[in-house]
Nucleic acid binder design. Sequence first.
DNA 1: GTCTATACAGTGATAGAC
DNA 2: GTCTATCACTGTATAGAC
Lengths: 214, 214
Amino acid sequence: MTASPTTCDRILDAAERLFADEGFHATSLRQITQAADANLAAVNYHFGSKQALILAVFRRRLDALNKARLTRLDAALTDSDRPDLEEILEAFIVPALAFTHGSEDAGHLFMRILMRAFAERDDQLHRALSAEYAHVMRRFASAIAVALPGVDEQCLRRHLDFIVGALTHTMAENGSSNGQAIANDLVRFAAAGLRSAVSVRNLDGATRTLEIHT
Amino acid sequence: MTASPTTCDRILDAAERLFADEGFHATSLRQITQAADANLAAVNYHFGSKQALILAVFRRRLDALNKARLTRLDAALTDSDRPDLEEILEAFIVPALAFTHGSEDAGHLFMRILMRAFAERDDQLHRALSAEYAHVMRRFASAIAVALPGVDEQCLRRHLDFIVGALTHTMAENGSSNGQAIANDLVRFAAAGLRSAVSVRNLDGATRTLEIHT
DNA sequence: GTCTATACAGTGATAGAC
DNA sequence: GTCTATCACTGTATAGAC
């Protein structure tokens, strides 16, 4: 069941489970290699460092998540001529929160790992991952820009940061409960927030008399 | 300049600076005590553990932030009879992002420490801090509930999580640039998101024919 | 009480033998 | 590729000096 063929995979599996259970910092390489029936030095041989091992554990699951996101985004875009904002947001949010309901091993572990990730990640990991998946963010930004014509580019980038922050914080906070309800809620919240920028901008351009807060 | 009177304060100052520069995990107690002209054991004597020292460093700044938030909230609530949603959100968001512009030592360090916090925090720290400042969240939740009559309680709690996540992620991502612009943006974004919940709920209760997404 | 010196078990990493 | 042995370093605990 847990006996994967190669040493590399056994280390990845053991590391994922231990990281999810105990946290990254609290898990030692000796624990991991012992659980994986491997030698201590094997980690540094195969991955280079503990940091790189953590990154590898993440990459394995985040690749799947972002592939699911892009697949759903493509479906939403080809679905109709004019992309629907809610569908785009669902393509980004639902796959992330969907693992929540999976009592499947991989899904459950992934969720707990993600909770750990945003509860404990260091910025090396953060930088590496956000660079690695920047193209995903760019694709969603483009799609939203089409669905919301007239939205300011810098404003859109900020709003995407808002959404990413809300999503990850909520995942870390709420664990594996109410995934679908939270997803619906966040989609509506984010859509309203995004649309508010466009309407304010339009009003501003049209009348120049809008009062700006503080 | 950096010579505070007591050993306790010197350790706190040195720890804050080193944590901001290098990160929590990467900074050793030996670095801290050396920079603070103190003995290694002084940390465990005064704070109990490295974890508790990290917590103490946070508490010193977060106390000030949350006091500023509550002061501004009180001002917004007594300002007029009916609380204004945007003013409430500003009371929560602006003080957090205001430190951004402070070239003052404390403000600048605080910002970088906060970036580290949400780039590296472990869940012990997270749990302790959110428990410690839960009353602040409760006060803001109550204020918003008054400003937005009819909003579902559970929904409001989720939305507050969205806002906290968006705020912290954005602070960690954008560093010390454009604080005021981001604050205005986030206030508008959050207000629109919050209002969307109320209008949807009202529509839902009134017509029962609203289509629910997916 | 406040602080110091010292010791300890455990960490990630690495060089070199097999 | 894999393993053993070893390194410098970590956070923590304690006994004792001021």
